[in-house]
Design a protein around this nucleic acid. Structure first.
Lengths: 199, 199
DNA sequence: GCAACAAGCTGTACAGTGTCCAACTTAAAT
DNA sequence: ATTTAAGTTGGACACTGTACAGCTTGTTGC
């Protein structure tokens, strides 16, 4: 019997390869996500789409949370960072936050996941965090308040994205950050860098 | 055989009452929630705790989401509202938001639920929403922007609560809203009520 | 007091979920 | 060519929320 008899992608037996890769799994997950929202991403559904047994996914992804974290983090990889030696650190922060906002809007279905998992924790998230901390320091934020300030900015941004994303009437779902976001961002930055008046 | 033989709460047969009420179910749910976090609240676990078959809960609660909504909404019932004829509508909004913040912090485990369900929708939520809208109008927010302004305030508050709640090192989990929250609240209010400069 | 009815509860069951284990086949390394 | 590792399947486990039928109790009308 020649191999062509089985070329048509029929049911595979144990051992037969499907040619899966981590990248393919993540890509498929992204597709599912963009089609049906966050709740529709199940391991079994993903496996079905890839024409593979559910367990096969675990060769490329260690758990569903791992998958989710990977998706979150490589979305964060799309966030544009300012040139390192930029003159004004506040502008740098503005750049990061508005870029983050845009990326979140473009991947709206991931926003609830971000909320639930309280942000991401992968390499890109860490990279952005370190960058933000440095800029906050350069902008004059007290050392003891740097981490808190970063968190406030992140929460504010994710919150705004969640808001822009959740409106039933899709008013302004453009990826351009709305004026209100830019404004409130400035207010926050102003407050953070202002010398403390009391206490 | 006299009734006392079965007084010890042994296994019930079909038909035997357990004396459950909606209030008892909600109370037990609150307990579970405060002990183990949001993910630990399952219908079966709840039933086990109440020594009842899982289905019994559905006589008092129409679904898990219904349960969650009820919990969310009666937490919102704890939010203190300002006296209706208050002079300064901005003060009224401040009161509502800081009270909401405190209530959320006191029920930290519910905050992720709030996030996922994008706020609550029960009677108390509606009541607060109507009140906020009225005050925003009185504060000079344009009619077309009232709903959006309300949402921004809510998102900002929930976001802050999520932030204060999520810190690994439990820094300042006091129910008093942190200064940063009060500040940013004022900034937002200022921006919302300021006459539009451009566009 | 008795019949009819509604409410509350259980037993059982279904269709899902994420994930683990053993077995098998194929590809890579030696 | 032989051993080793990687990828995949079948099957299973322990869960989840919830629907349906039937039993028993409490309540209501007569």
């Amino acid at each position: 019997m020649n191999a062509e008899d089985f070329d048509a992608t029929g049911p595979r037996g144990p051992g037969q390869r499907a040619g899966l890769t981590r990248g393919a799994v993540l890509d498929a997950a992204r597709t599912v996500l963009s089609e049906g929202g966050a709740g529709t991403l199940t391991m079994r559904g993903l496996a079905r789409r890839l024409e593979v047994a559910p367990n096969a996914l675990y060769s490329h992804v260690s758990s569903r949370d791992d998958l989710l974290d990977a998706l979150l983090d490589d979305v964060l990889g799309l966030v544009g960072v300012p040139s390192p030696g930029l003159a004004d650190p506040l502008d740098g922060i503005r750049t990061i936050m508005t870029s983050t906002y845009s990326v979140l809007i473009e991947h709206a279905v991931l926003v609830p996941v971000f909320l639930v998992r309280q942000g991401a924790r992968g390499v890109n998230a860490v990279r952005l965090g370190v960058l933000m901390d440095a800029m906050l320091r350069r902008a004059g934020v007290e050392e003891s308040a740097v981490a808190e300030a970063r968190r406030v900015l992140i929460v504010h941004t994710i919150g705004f994205a969640a808001f822009s994303t959740a409106v039933d009437t899709p008013v302004g779902r453009s990826a351009d950050p709305p004026r209100a976001f830019l404004r409130s961002l400035d207010w926050l930055l102003t407050g953070m860098t202002a010398p403390r008046s009391r206490r």
